[in-house]
């Protein structure tokens, strides 16, 4: 594996984790009594940027290395389903995540009213942030199992 590929592998994991930390931090703030709109906008922006960084790095690793070098190992190993089920699922969720992040950021940027008075809006935004965290956590765990199967 070349140094650039190693960097892509390491970078996509850490950028993804950092994104999840940002989105995770949004949930209690949205549900709490005093949500701070500017703080939420910042978290959402940082979360989206981190997701996009993770997206580009993972895309590079997947297109240039995974298919030719890792996938055959998994398919011929003891856990071929790690690719056929987990990686196939991971790919699609992973492609979808930045769009969810974009929806969340766009929703926060478009809020003109007092967010503290609109419980339904806050609950909907918290649910969206939770969905990103839940899906992100799922693909992270899939990644661990997929890597474990590449032996």
């Amino acid at each position: 594996m070349t140094p650039i590929l190693k960097l892509a592998l390491i970078g996509h994991v850490f950028a993804g984790l950092v994104a999840l930390i940002f989105y995770y931090a949004m949930i209690p703030n949205l549900i709490g009594k005093n949500p701070q709109l500017n703080f939420l906008k910042r978290l959402s922006l940082f979360g989206l940027v981190s997701l996009l960084v993770s997206w580009i790095l993972a895309g590079y690793y997947y297109v240039t290395y995974y298919g030719q070098n890792v996938k055959p190992l998994i398919k011929s190993g003891q856990l071929p389903w790690a690719h056929s089920i987990l990686m196939e699922t991971k790919e699609h969720i992973f492609l979808f995540l930045p769009f969810l992040g974009l929806v969340l950021l766009a929703s926060l940027l478009s809020i003109k009213s007092d967010i503290t008075r609109d419980d339904n809006l806050r609950k909907a935004l918290a649910s969206l942030a939770f969905l990103i965290v839940a899906l992100g956590t799922a693909v992270t765990i899939f990644g661990v199992v997929i890597s474990g199967a590449a032996k």
Partner: peptide, 8 residues
């Protein structure tokens, strides 16, 4: 990265 994937 060090070839110890089985530990995962």
């Amino acid at each position: 990265l060090t070839g110890h994937e089985e530990r995962l």
